[in-house]
Nucleic acid binder design. Structure first.
Lengths: 230, 230
DNA sequence: AATCTCTTTTTGTGATCACATTTTCTGAAA
DNA sequence: TTTCAGAAAATGTGATCACAAAAAGAGATT
């Protein structure tokens, strides 16, 4: 029985055990700490998180609701498999959802917020230069999240995070097999468009960012990655 | 203590208590059986479902993950409130998501499936004539679901259902205050477009269907409905 | 080696209980 | 009637346990 290792995560005061388990697992999956097909057990995670089955099971159930995990018929809990076709669907969904969310956020963004977004973009570059892929990834997600959540009724945000979670595992594989991380520079383009309050240009920049970033993997590249990981 | 009444729902053999609770509550919310702001208790639902707190809590946690319920800071569990702005965001998200899903489904639909969809559309008319609003609503959802899930990798479907769930409570209010139910006849248009394999026309018909259906409530109408329900 | 059968272990499920917090109820004071 | 303080009840949380199903292991047979 190998003990499970999870990326650490701070636990604020007053946070319930269940919430902590949920957030920690969620973040682990989102940054690609689990491979597709990996199976987890309630008791195993309870031990790793130093708690009991009850709150862990609740966290796992929530994670399945957002597509991050899957309860199989035989009651096993696994990280869902990805096929090239499903990957392509997820990317196209990301583009549809995020360009929609970006367009809907433009009117709500203050100058100050836009500067904050530009600062986050700088931090992405910094992390890449340092070679910290996970940190760069988290900063990149923060960049996108900051834009979409400027809308006070950002109902699309939870759905977007669900898609990110479903892409997490293959992202983890990609990171292992890609020596150098780079981010296509559509971010500057998006920031400029935000400053001009040009909704269409913002949506286009976000779409291009996704398409040329993780979306740049074609079916064969995905198939190759999946084979490498198998 | 008034006992809680939930719309009935069959329970297949071998279905876990948790799964049953989840599905029954989900369906109840989706068809508008709960008002916005309604609060529920774990023990109360456990009693109504003739089970214990554990599986009910898991079901409630899942429902919060998909936006159907909300755990407040004081640990109370409520059906989320809706503002006119949030309503408008949800409708616009429905249009973005569903026209995307519809477009992506067109290529996968067989002639046989299209006929099945047309049959479902007929059943909607039947239910409306009978005056059974809930049945008409469920049939209408089946119509949409059947289209989107023709795509074997319909990754957008769970997200779409999440939006439906969030619109459920206001839908329930609307049904109480609308004497006559009618469905804008964009369904025929969608079916025709499906037969022609015209992706753009299908997407447009679905968008129009939403916009002229539930989306037809303007901000003032929503505000009025919410006031009536308060 | 490969396959099958039986035993042992592991695992998910759901009920129950103790605890702390929150809400509700009760009754007195203003 | 309103307001407020304390008591009582209700509620969410998390650990534990018993049970059934599934998986893993052991040993015999082909």
């Amino acid at each position: 029985m190998k003990t499970l290792v999870l990326p650490p995560l701070g636990r604020p005061d007053g946070m319930t055990t269940h919430d902590y388990a949920f957030n920690r697992l969620r973040q682990a999956i989102m940054v690609g700490a689990f491979r597709p097909g990996t199976s987890v057990t309630i008791r195993g995670l309870a031990e790793a998180l130093e708690s009991s089955p009850t709150p862990v099971r609740e966290a796992l159930r929530q994670l399945t609701s957002i597509g991050a995990l899957q309860f199989l018929e035989n009651r096993r809990i696994v990280v869902p498999h990805i096929t090239p076709a499903r990957f392509e669907e997820l990317i196209s969904l990301r583009i549809a959802l995020e360009s929609h969310a970006a367009r809907r956020a433009v009117a709500h963004l203050s100058e100050r917020q836009i500067e904050k977004i530009a600062a986050i973009d700088d931090s992405i570059e910094t992390e890449i230069r340092k070679g910290d892929k996970v940190a760069a990834l988290i900063a990149n997600q923060a960049f996108h999240r900051m834009i979409y959540t400027a809308n006070p009724d950002a109902v699309a945000m939870p759905l977007i995070e669900s898609v990110w979670l479903q892409l997490g595992p293959i992202l983890g594989i990609a990171m292992e097999h890609v020596t150098e991380l780079y981010v296509v520079d559509r971010h500057r383009e998006a920031i400029d468009a935000l400053r001009r309050r040009d909704e269409q240009a913002v949506a286009d920049a976000i779409a291009a960012d996704i398409r040329e970033g993780i979306g740049g993997f074609d079916q064969q590249a995905v198939a190759r990655l999946l084979r490498l990981a198998a």
